[in-house]
């Protein structure tokens, strides 16, 4: 069994809770995480743009990226890499089982939660 599984999963919502092509924020401990529902699957990034803290969960999604609604900085959905200027954001793994959308809790999130 993989390490990640031992850390557990946090169910954040049902698949129907996030409209296709959009994101929604969720609080995990003291952290805000943006959960994205796209044609190619589910993704999660920290919900704060490193530039000015814009809510990425309100951003426009393309196939592989999200654009911050404040100043159009873009980040890769899979890894949080900065596709325009500046720093990357943390990416989290999403696992969908049946109707449930789960966040895989990375170590730091685990402590926070």
């Amino acid at each position: 069994m993989s390490v990640a599984l031992e850390k557990g999963l946090l169910r954040v919502c049902a698949t129907a809770d996030v409209p296709l092509g959009e994101g929604r924020p969720v609080t995990v401990g003291d952290r805000r995480v943006a959960v994205f529902h796209t044609e190619s699957g589910w993704y999660a990034l920290d919900d704060s743009c490193p530039h000015r803290g814009g809510p990425l969960s309100d951003g426009i999604l393309a196939d592989r990226c999200v654009a911050c609604p404040l100043h159009d900085r873009r980040f890769g959905l899979a890894d949080g890499a900065a596709l325009t200027d500046g720093a990357a954001v943390a990416a989290h793994r999403v696992i969908v089982r049946g109707e449930g959308v789960h966040l895989e809790i990375a170590e730091e999130l685990e402590q926070a939660a």
Partner: peptide, 17 residues
């Protein structure tokens, strides 16, 4: 959920797997 985030949704912890 046009105007809502997920916090009010079904956040519940499933531990351990």
């Amino acid at each position: 959920r046009q105007f809502d985030g997920l916090d009010e949704a079904t956040a519940e912890r499933e531990l351990p797997m």
